[in-house]
Amino acid sequence: MARINDVGGTQGFGAIDTTDDTEPFHADWEARVVGLYNTLRAQGIFNTNEFRDAIESMPPADYLATSYYERWFLAICSLLERKGVIEPGELDD
């Protein structure tokens, strides 16, 4: 038993795509998410370990279906909800 992020030694992830991508971000929103993370953490809204905990607590199927920075965004949202900064559903269409 372990969380879904704890993948060391797990079999089945297949070959590594060793493409040497040098662009730090693949879309503008990814940069905004990093900016949000750094700004909110610097303000003490959450700490690094709470943020990691929020990523690791994702349902395994969601974790594997989302991209790296999507996980970051979902983790930020769940922390902000838990801390009462935003209301559940406030970001929905």
Binding site: W29, R32, G35, L36, L91
Partner: peptide
């Protein structure tokens, strides 16, 4: 959704667009 979160947090006075740009 990221854009919407940014707007929400700006309204709540937690961030500004400039601070985010600086952080990036």
């Amino acid at each position: 959704r990221v854009r919407r979160l940014e707007t929400l947090l700006e309204e709540k006075g937690l961030i500004t667009g400039e601070r985010l740009d600086e952080a990036i």
